[in-house]
Design a binder for these strands. Structure first.
Length: 340
DNA sequence: GACACGTGGCT
DNA sequence: TAGCCAAGTGT
């Protein structure tokens, strides 16, 4: 009933005419093979992250570290600072671990099979399949949020996410083929991102409209169905902006595990319902107002306090601190210094 | 399977 | 505007 060859041909034709030009894609017409390092780096940066947000980071990383060997040699703190602002910081820790594993265990060359890629830190089912397909042109079932949405509409899947995931994966697998596997994966994702969008899909521009069950229902945007998410709790905390006589700021390095793990941060209280005000130094602490921040699974109000002092911290200029800090602390620092 | 894990843009 | 959403992975 579903004409897989016709759908495949239609989407690949569409991709030949409409493929986006992206920094990590080989330029059209170029015979150069796509560099697996750049494919891997882009895929990790794009996990749960938009193209406009990731693109400048990709440019900076590939300029500073043109090969996986260069990346493997970077100090942890330098890498974490370069990732600051991109979010999901476990990705940065795993990125470094992966680069070092490729350098140490694979002679500096990315392995080409899905199974070997999957064994690398921070490389899951999606990224392993994407690198195998895009960098090495191997047939692989590349399933991300875009592909799930396209499949859920093409087949009008009534099961809500995340329960529908195995079924959507089986449907996507129907299209995996050794003809242009890398282009197929990217075509599906370009379609999902630009045409088969979550809201207001552009079905009149869709090369797969002729075979789309959701379009026949008259409400394609209803797919994929989703189960309602739990409500996001709210937490409070105190953040301490301690400066020395020269204006440098006291930072700490956060533990490797957990929220903002491995990142530089401001000293803070615990975060909870009514955290104690317990600054890291005695001193003349002044309230500097508060900042709001929203994480994936809770929102946060951070009361900012400022004082001058000394002590055993990572003392950093305000400009360097702003660059190395995750966004929540960058906001708190700006609030603290602005009020100082 | 459920949950932890960031951020910024869009509606 | 408050929520939804983006090329997921690890535990």
């Amino acid at each position: 009933m579903t004409d897989v060859p016709s759908l495949r041909a239609a989407l690949l034709d569409w991709y030949d005419a409409h493929a986006r030009s992206l920094p990590w894609r080989a330029s059209p017409g170029s015979e150069a093979k796509t560099d697996p390092y750049r494919v891997w780096l882009s895929e990790v940066m794009l996990q749960q992250t938009t193209v406009p947000h990731a693109a400048p980071y990709f440019e900076r990383f590939t300029t500073r570290w043109p090969t996986v060997g260069d990346l493997a040699a970077v100090e942890d703190a330098e890498l974490m600072a370069a990732w600051a602002g991109l979010g999901y910081y476990a990705r940065a820790r795993n990125l470094l671990a992966c680069a070092r594993a490729v350098a140490a265990d694979h002679s500096g060359a990315f392995p080409q099979t899905e199974a070997e890629l999957l064994a690398l830190p921070g490389v899951g089912a999606y990224t392993a399949a994407a690198v195998a397909a895009i960098a090495f042109d191997r047939p692989a079932n590349v399933v991300d949020g875009n592909v799930e949405r396209v499949m859920s509409r093409l087949f009008a899947v009534e099961t809500p996410l995340p329960a529908a995931r195995p079924e959507l994966r089986r449907l996507a697998a129907l299209f995996v083929d050794d003809h242009r596997p890398g282009d197929w994966a990217q075509a599906l994702m370009d379609l999902g991102s630009g045409v088969c969008r979550p809201r207001s899909p552009l079905c009149d521009q869709c090369p797969l409209a002729f075979g789309c069950e959701a379009l026949k229902t008259g409400a394609p945007e209803r797919y994929p169905l989703k189960t309602k998410k739990a409500e996001r709790p709210h937490r409070r905390g105190h953040a301490y902006v301690l400066t020395d006589a020269t204006g440098r700021v006291a930072l700490v390095r956060r533990p490797d595990k957990g929220l903002l793990g491995g990142m530089a941060g401001l000293p803070t209280s615990d975060w909870g319902a009514a955290p104690d005000f317990a600054p890291p130094m005695e001193g003349d602490w002044r309230a500097a107002g508060s900042v709001e921040h929203v994480f994936t699974h809770f929102s946060l109000t951070l009361e900012v306090h400022v004082a001058e002092g000394q002590g055993d911290f990572l003392w950093t200029t305000a400009a360097e601190a702003a660059k190395a800090l995750p966004t929540v602390f960058r906001k708190a620092l700006e609030r603290g210094l602005g009020a100082a």
